[in-house]
């Protein structure tokens, strides 16, 4: 469904990604793990058009999307819930969700999707009229995911959903991610600091180190790998 081949991204003189190739099949949860600055977020940014790659190709559902501007990809069914959540703090929860469905003209579809998000995260329904900036970190993460879902994506790029969130909410959010994948058939490319948790819910994983992919395998195999355990899973 999503194929990245030999992707190279530079930030000025620094090479952030070097020859990265990866693949996400329909219906999979694939996770990228790696330390800080390994290039996980950059990979997602390059896929969704936030940064222009220097070399390489990105194909989504068979079409080359390399270098397409971010706002065009949403319409193709590829959504990105970015690092740091980036909810519109000056908009209400409801307006945030409506912006998520910006390209959708059919009000009935928007209402249905909104209902779906509210059923998945009832907390958002309670906070519907509140400014997003007043939500807790966990609620903002729910909103960021909900907003991405409003565009009815077939593939979701999800960056650090557990960052800075209370453990209880992390558990809830990960359950919802699994539910989206199993029930709705949503394909997910996940970037996560918490490698243990990420590999637990993923089918496959890639390990990034200083901009290169050093390992690629089934999630269960990676979890058993002594090197991975030592470097990313806390021994």
């Amino acid at each position: 469904m999503l194929e990245v081949s030999q992707l190279t991204v530079n930030y000025g003189a620094i090479t952030a990604l070097h020859d990265v190739s990866l693949r996400v099949d329909k219906g999979e949860i694939v996770t990228l793990i790696g330390g800080n600055g390994a290039g996980k977020t950059t990979t997602l940014r390059a896929i969704s058009g936030m940064v222009k790659p220097k070399a390489g190709e990105i194909r989504y559902e068979g079409r080359a999307i390399t270098g397409l501007p971010a706002h065009k990809l949403v319409g193709m069914g590829l959504a990105h819930s970015p690092e740091g959540r980036m909810v519109f703090a000056n908009l209400t929860v409801r307006e945030n969700l409506q912006m998520g469905a910006y390209l959708q003209r059919d009000q009935a579809v928007i209402a249905r999707e909104e209902e779906f998000v509210f059923t998945m995260f009832p907390r958002l329904k309670e906070r519907e009229a509140q400014l997003a900036g007043t939500l807790s970190g966990g609620e903002q993460q729910m909103l960021a995911i909900g907003r991405a879902l409003m565009s009815q994506p077939r593939c979701l790029l999800l960056d650090e959903p557990s960052l800075g969130i209370a453990p209880l909410l992390v558990k809830l959010i990960f359950e919802k991610i699994v539910e989206l994948n199993r029930v709705r058939g949503l394909t997910i490319l996940l970037v996560e600091q918490n490698a243990n948790l990420a590999l637990e819910i993923s089918h496959r994983g890639y390990v990034l180190e200083t901009g290169r992919i050093i390992l690629a395998d089934q999630a269960a195999t990676l979890r058993a790998d002594p090197k991975v355990r030592e470097a990313y899973l806390g021994g």
């Binding site: 936030m50 501007p69 949403v74 519109f88 000056n90 908009l91 910006y102 907003r147 409003m150």
Partner: peptide, 16 residues
């Protein structure tokens, strides 16, 4: 208002 708050996030929801 969305673009004014965060142009990148706005592009990510499909706003040109």
């Amino acid at each position: 208002r969305a673009v004014s708050f965060n142009a990148t996030a706005a592009a990510l929801v499909g706003i040109n």
